Amino acid sequence: MSIQLATCTYQEFAPHMGTPVRTTVGHPRFALSYQLAGHARLITPTRELLKIKAQDAYEFSYRRLLNGNGLDAIRRELTGIAGAFDLDSPLVLLCFDRLDRLTPPDNWCHRSHFAKWWTEQTGDEVPELGGQATAAPTPPPTLFDM
Rank of each mutant, 00 (worst) to 15 (best):
H110S: 01
C109M: 06
L5Y: 01
S112Q: 01
K51F: 10
R98M: 12
E128D: 14
L102R: 14
K116Y: 07
E48V: 12
P20T: 08
K53V: 15
F85Y: 15
R76W: 09
F60Q: 15
P127D: 10
E48S: 14
A37C: 03
E128N: 15
A135Q: 06
V25N: 12
N107H: 10
L42T: 04
I81K: 09
R98S: 13
C109H: 01
T142E: 15
R111M: 00
Q35V: 11
N67S: 09
L78H: 03
F60A: 12
R29V: 08
R75C: 15
L32C: 06
R41S: 02
G83K: 12
H113P: 01
L50K: 14
A31F: 11
L102C: 15
P105Y: 09
S61W: 05
P20R: 10
A40V: 03
D100S: 12
A115R: 03
E59G: 00
P137C: 01
G70C: 07
R22D: 11
T122L: 10
L5K: 09
I74Y: 03
P137T: 00
D100E: 15
K53A: 15
P20Y: 11
R75W: 13
A73W: 03
H110D: 02
S112W: 03
H110V: 00
L87Y: 14
D106T: 01
D56T: 12
S89H: 13
H113L: 01
A6I: 07
P15M: 11
L102I: 04
T134E: 09
T44Q: 05
L99W: 07
G26M: 14
Q132P: 02
L94D: 08
L93A: 08
T19P: 09
I52T: 09
L129F: 13
L87A: 14
P140Q: 06
H39L: 05
L93M: 09
S61D: 14
D72V: 11
A31T: 14
G123F: 02
V126C: 02
L71T: 11
E77Y: 10
L36W: 04
Y62S: 06
A40E: 00
F30C: 00
T44F: 01
L94Q: 00
G123W: 05
R75I: 10
A84L: 15
F114T: 04
S89N: 08
P105E: 03
Q4N: 13
A84I: 14
L93F: 07
L129R: 00
R29A: 13
T7F: 05
P137R: 02
I52C: 06
D124P: 12
Y10D: 13
G68P: 06
V21P: 05
P90I: 09
A82N: 11
L93D: 09
R63G: 00
D100M: 06
D56S: 13
V21H: 05
L65R: 00
A54I: 02
T44D: 06
P140R: 02
H39K: 13
P104E: 06
P127S: 11
L36I: 07
T119L: 14
P139K: 10
T138K: 09
L91H: 08
G68T: 04
V92Y: 04
T9Q: 05
